[in-house]
């Protein structure tokens, strides 16, 4: 059961991987560690925990996907490379240069070759589960722009008419290894200042919010307090008449002074702090022997030095 749980948890996290951006016609763009300009594809971890992409497959030919027979042709991402562990909301780039001997991130296919398909697929380590497939238009083979999701990992967006359309676009900036969304605008704080130069708006909104939050608590506590007091009164009416008469004769219902409160508090404090807990009823005799521990004996823990006689 534990094994099946771990498998399902693994598959849940690996499913958060998305093929996010790619470039095929790499003339003078992003270079690999050998300085070559080759096609590349970016994988995005959309999860909020690290995901290891090792042992998954990358391919541009999904033949044999559902019976697992395609694994021999696909590029299996090697395990043991710490760089295959993708941190939360982070990215990793693979070079599609058909030279896998160049390292972990160099796959065994090249989408720029004639006859190649128009997609790249990421398949889980069992060779049967498709994690993500990224289709691209033919024009990308000759485009100087990369192609990917406008917002990282988000496949669809709503258009002006409310219809869901693809979120894939030709991106204005190449962003291998980083977010596709490049915000050239102001920061959140700068936007606030642009609309509210001296902070009066924010101050008013914030004060109203603080008051609202605490006012709601006030109202709820008031209602709850009334209910509690009503219950208390109801209980009070159930007191036997004889006791009620006695209490009416002795106690006058009026507010007590601060000094009286302090005196009562002190008396109660002394009463509660001085009282004993429930005794066990068993008497034991504790012998008054000195506590001995060999660890505290100097002659036992220090090495004896031989002395010449």
């Amino acid at each position: 059961m534990l094994f099946s749980m771990s498998i399902s948890m693994f598959s849940q996290t690996i499913n958060d991987l998305k093929i996010n951006e790619m470039l095929i016609d790499n003339v003078d763009n992003f270079a690999d560690e050998y300085g070559r300009h080759v096609p590349w594809v970016e994988i995005f971890n959309s999860a909020y925990n690290s995901v290891n992409v090792a042992e998954c497959f990358l391919t541009n030919d999904t033949t044999g996907l559902y019976n697992g027979s395609g694994v021999k042709n696909w590029y299996r991402i090697p395990k043991g490379d710490p760089l295959t562990l993708i941190a939360q909301r982070s990215f990793v780039v693979f070079y599609m240069d058909n030279v896998p001997k160049y390292g972990t991130f160099h796959v065994n296919f090249d989408p720029s070759l004639p006859g190649s398909s128009n997609y790249v697929a990421l398949i889980s380590s069992n060779g049967k589960t498709l994690i993500d497939i990224f289709e691209f238009p033919e024009i990308l083979r000759h485009s100087s722009q990369s192609y990917g999701y406008f917002t990282d990992g988000i496949e669809e967006k709503e258009d002006e008419n409310g219809n869901m359309v693809s979120n894939k676009v030709f991106l204005d900036y190449f962003t291998p290894g980083s977010t596709n969304f490049v915000d050239e605008g102001l920061t959140k704080a700068e936007k606030v200042q642009a609309r509210d130069k001296y902070g009066f708006g924010l101050a008013i909104i914030a004060m109203v919010t603080v008051f609202s939050a605490l006012a709601v608590i006030y109202l709820l506590m008031k209602i709850f307090g009334k209910v509690a007091r009503t219950k208390f009164k109801l209980r009070k009416t159930k007191v036997p008449n004889t006791l009620k008469k006695e209490s009416q004769g002795n106690v006058e219902e009026e507010d007590i002074t601060g000094e009286e409160s302090a005196a009562l508090s002190l008396a109660l404090h002394l009463y509660f702090t001085n009282q004993h807990e429930k005794e066990s009823g068993i008497i034991t005799i504790d012998s008054s022997s000195a506590h001995f521990s060999p660890w505290s004996q100097k002659h036992l823990v220090l090495k004896q030095v031989n002395r010449k006689r």
């Binding site: 902070g199 101050a203 004060m207 008051f211 939050a213 605490l214 006012a215 006030y218 008031k222 307090g225």
Partner: peptide
Amino acid sequence: PKLILIGAAAQLGIFGAY
């Protein structure tokens, strides 16, 4: 519970200083 509103009013210092 009405005393809770005083705690809200005193936050004026924060937004005044802002």
